[in-house]
Design a protein around this nucleic acid. Structure first.
Length: 595
RNA sequence: GCGCCCUUAGCUCAGUUGGAUAGAGCAACAGCCUUCUAAGCUGUGGGUCGGUGGUUCGAAUCCACCAGGGCGCGCCA
């Protein structure tokens, strides 16, 4: 039997529809859906086939639904098919088909829900890509979790996924990091120079004053002594120290970022350095290609309407014809000092991702990069001659709440919430799950109190608790039945006819939604659907558990009913399996017990 | 001023790409708790889906305009 009963049924529906109305276009057939019903009274599934085909077929939707229902009624999979509402066909699975999904899950294990939906399409998901100029904070965290889970969802759905982190180690902010690190170095060496005196002698100012660079300065002092300092521990000639200091600082920042990511359970496969890409000449090469396509020119931009910057003056720039590809205006590629803009280098980076083999590029970005999206999409279209789409998942701001009050993320006020602080306080599982309990393009409040709560209010607890309850039952059952009777294979052979309570059936219906949900979440690039699904699934399981409190005949372990116990253990094992499968996608630990 | 995102119950949010009577948790109210794990459970009330038009068999979902919130708007990344 198929893992995905919905797609299997859809094939039957399309076949039946085509038999009744032979000449439907592929476009019409593509709109045929078989979806779960909201109301169990409507059966297990419903199809809109009659409604989408009614107009092209020139038939009344109700009449078509009637004909479709009669054709489908003969399927062994179905117990009932009947027209309903404006032209739905409600489908009730046969008991065999419904219960049959349990051994399918047991045999598939955690691979249940894997699909070939993606068809091996090569997808490159880039996320985090924080500047290596400081520790990761909560703003980065959401993108990290969303990107990681999106990659996992798409991989499960049959895409060939690569994950990637772009290291912005080439721009002016890295210059500033070098200077700020040098200041900390001088301090470590015992210099008494004030920030103001130091800043006056730098080209970048002293942008990064956080304590996190103190260890960098100390490390530099340990390694080099006072040899990088000037006379009287003042500033030395930059050519004598700058590259060394900058590179040491970058390395240390990157180590820290990777540690933070590891603590969060995120590990991109590829780390790409902007500086290395630049050094290889990739940026000049790509700009040359665009030039050859006639997409680059020297021109002067109009000032933005309504809000002209104070220092606006018309000036000629090297521009990319983004407007040819749907952007609002053409975009500059060079700064006045002749170096590349961030955009220019990012073109090279995206071209590089394509050249390494990608059919779809996905960037997970913070909302503050929203204005960057249209130009990037435009240029990816240009570079790939329209072959590779760039999709952008924007993550909106996270407001951290404690005790109902917002926690301000202010470096000056010292309430800067780093990722590590957050992980220390609430733990990896709660951070990841909570970040995925919102659509990524909606602002979210992260309630610290809720994230650590051991109650139903906390979704991650609720889901992990469901898994722990399953495992608890199974542990108890081993003592009663012996381990041999408890393997998935053994349970897959169990007679399941004892599973006839409405709540048991509701749980099975929830389980069989999993493969369909994966495909939907992957197609929509919405990993949060997995978190919500798991919450719903956990809810169905808890409801069954609770029902057994009032009605002892519904408890999983029945001392005097071996067959019924085996059937229920099969269901419990299947439930635990799907929860694990889902948590695996989200990168959350399935708890064995919670005490 | 322009562009993008958002607005759903008192609060925080879902809503399966246009489907049937719009859902969940919290809060409120009413019951229940000697147990396979009560760090609870069951039930009830609660809505002009920001507003107004439009598209069609059918709209929270698509389009237009308006209101409110967020982000951005020529060499920061």
């Amino acid at each position: 039997m198929s893992q995905n009963l919905f797609s299997e049924m859809r094939d039957h529906v399309v076949a039946a529809l085509t038999a009744i109305v032979p000449d439907l276009s592929p476009e019409v057939l593509a709109r045929v859906e078989v979806s779960p019903t909201r109301d169990p009274a409507h059966g297990d599934m419903a199809t809109n086939a009659a409604m989408v085909a009614a107009k092209p077929a020139g038939q009344n939707p109700r009449a078509l639904a009637q004909a479709l229902a009669e054709t489908l009624a003969g399927l062994p999979l179905l117990a009932q098919a009947e027209p309903a509402g404006p032209g739905f066909v409600n489908l009730r699975l046969s008991t065999d088909a419904l219960l049959g999904q349990v051994p399918v899950i047991l045999q598939a294990g955690e691979s249940y829900g894997d699909s070939r939906f993606g068809g091996g399409t090569r997808v490159n998901v880039e996320y985090v890509s924080a500047n290596p100029t400081g520790p990761m904070h909560i703003g980065h965290c959401r993108g990290a979790v969303v990107g990681d889970a999106l990659a996992a969802v798409m991989a499960k759905a049959g895409f060939a996924v690569t994950t990637e982190y772009y290291i912005n180690d080439a721009g002016g902010q890295v210059q500033a990091l070098g200077w700020a690190s040098y200041w900390r170095y001088l301090q470590a060496a015992g210099s008494t120079i004030t920030p103001e005196e130091f800043e006056a002698q730098t080209p970048t100012g002293l942008q990064y004053r956080g304590d996190y660079l103190i260890p960098v300065g100390e490390a530099l002092f340990r390694e080099f002594g006072t040899s990088l300092a000037g006379p009287d521990l003042g500033l030395a000639e930059p050519s004598l120290w700058f590259e060394t200091v900058r590179d040491r600082a970058l390395t240390m920042m990157l180590v820290e970022i990777r540690e933070d990511l590891a603590l969060l359970g995120v590990q991109q496969k590829v780390f790409s350095s902007e500086a290395a890409l630049l050094a290889s000449g990739a940026a000049d090469r790509v700009i040359g290609e665009l030039e050859a396509k006639g997409l680059i020119y020297e021109g002067v931009l109009e000032p933005p309407k309504g809000k002209t910057p104070d220092d606006w003056e018309p000036r000629p720039q090297t521009l990319f014809r983004a407007t040819d590809f749907g952007d609002d205006f053409d975009r500059p590629l060079r700064k006045s000092d002749g170096s590349n803009t961030y955009f220019a280098n990012d073109i090279a980076y995206h071209a590089d991702k394509i050249a390494r083999g990608a059919d779809i590029l996905i960037d997970v970005l913070g909302a503050d990069h929203g204005g960057y999206v249209s130009r990037m999409k435009a240029v990816v279209k240009a570079v790939s001659d329209g072959r590779v789409p760039l999709e952008v998942v924007l993550c909106q701001i996270v407001h951290v709440m404690r005790g109902g009050q917002p926690v301000r993320m202010s470096k000056r006020a010292g309430t800067f919430v780093t990722l590590r602080d957050l992980l220390d306080e609430v733990g990896r599982d709660a951070v990841r799950f909570t970040m995925l309990m919102r659509k990524s393009d909606a602002q979210m409040e992260f309630d610290l109190d809720q994230a650590v709560a051991q109650t139903r209010e906390n979704p991650v607890f609720y889901v992990q608790y469901a898994h722990a309850r399953c495992r608890s039952v199974l542990r108890a059952a081993v003592e009663q039945l012996g381990a041999d009777a408890m393997t998935p294979d053994a349970l897959a052979g169990a007679d399941l006819s004892a599973l006839d309570d409405a709540q048991e059936i509701a749980l099975i219906r929830a389980l069989m939604n999993w493969p369909r949900l994966i495909e939907g979440a992957a197609a929509a690039r919405e990993p949060h659907r997995v978190a919500f699904y798991l919450y719903d699934l956990a809810s169905e399981f808890h409801m069954l558990w609770n029902k057994g409190r009032d009605d002892t005949t519904l408890r999983f372990l029945q001392a005097d009913d071996a067959a019924g116990t085996r059937a229920r253990l099969a269901l419990v094992t299947a439930t635990a399996t799907v929860i694990r499968s889902g948590l695996q996608v989200l990168g959350v630990t399935p708890a064995e017990e919670m005490r």
